[in-house]
Nucleic acid binder design. Sequence first.
DNA 1: TAGATTGTTAATCGATTAACAATC
DNA 2: TAGATTGTTAATCGATTAACAATC
Lengths: 205, 205
Amino acid sequence: MNRRSIIRLSKYKNTLQRLKAMGFVKVFSDNLADALGIRSTQVRKDFSQFKITGNKRGGYIIDELLEKILRILGKTSIQRVVLVGIGNIGRALLHYKGFENEGIEIDSAFDINPDKQTGRDDISVYPMEQLVGYIQKEKIEVAVIAVPDIAAQRVFDLLLQAGIKGVLNFAPIRLRGPEQIPVTNVNLVLEIENLFCFVNAKKEE
Amino acid sequence: MNRRSIIRLSKYKNTLQRLKAMGFVKVFSDNLADALGIRSTQVRKDFSQFKITGNKRGGYIIDELLEKILRILGKTSIQRVVLVGIGNIGRALLHYKGFENEGIEIDSAFDINPDKQTGRDDISVYPMEQLVGYIQKEKIEVAVIAVPDIAAQRVFDLLLQAGIKGVLNFAPIRLRGPEQIPVTNVNLVLEIENLFCFVNAKKEE
DNA sequence: TAGATTGTTAATCGATTAACAATC
DNA sequence: TAGATTGTTAATCGATTAACAATC
């Protein structure tokens, strides 16, 4: 149950949904491997880990496979997240179309300045003081931190206090907290720096 | 020269810049390890790979170390990127403060609709037809793809045609192209799905 | 010097892949 | 059946870490 295999599971899901839309009924581990650019043994190993079985000789029935994967990914019901921080990144997320197709819903947004607008009628903005209470009352499990880096740790502490279960962090700092709470960091500067480094390294070769 | 060690190099750089600002002169591999939450052997191994040496017993002089790392990361001059696609993500990037501190500059933006505004006086918008010519004329090496997923591959093909050296891709698809051109994918939906999966897995334990 | 830290070698660990038996 | 594909075991590969000699 490592992070990489779960990410692949998500990719299998996307591929399967597309194949299904195209009218396909069965799929082989070799097809999925090609789609993801990996080996078929990897696909079967992944399935094996998650106790997903197919039919010897017959591959996998897309509908059955998809259902199993969706169950594992917990996508059977809508997944609600709160957004903390309505800056550039936060606003982009609010208008990002990709979430709803995948059953992800930004439930509400929080900012130190609650007069900020989300630009969406269906998402309210609350002041930071209500963050902890709201999460507890609404049983929100995942939060997105999109505040400036100096505020990020304080927000994270509040989220922990509220009993959050997972965090997606856009602030370019390492959040400190208990190990069992997964934090995924998205650091755009780092990604671009990384690219330049590769480009430079290639040039010198 | 693997991706992970380069990402760590970037993190060392951030830590060193902060230490320097605080007036420190020397640093030990143990300090850097603590800051990143890794082992000191990992730090020294990284340095060793990049031919960075310190002083036995004396640690590393921050100024010297920083200079070496910046040279490796190619951060001695401003790094220019072009942005393709002025949607939610693109607009967030245009206003993202984190880039300039790190010597990254969005040089110009491209969109099928060149009437779109960047909201910044210093960044012009050009129509897609000028993308290839501009990149070649201005010798741009890195591009950011922030267009809808159906357009992403076409944009990538144009960028390749223009001779781009690296791409940061926000479209949730796998771009197909030559292996030697590094493509970094940022897939926000995948990241959030991933978190939920962990959260669900924890619940079942 | 004695103590502390670097730099490197060897061991460990985890993930991927090859090989192949099981079986439809 | 013969051929093809699954599921699993063993081998490989790469990255991390432990151990430790070198040395300031």
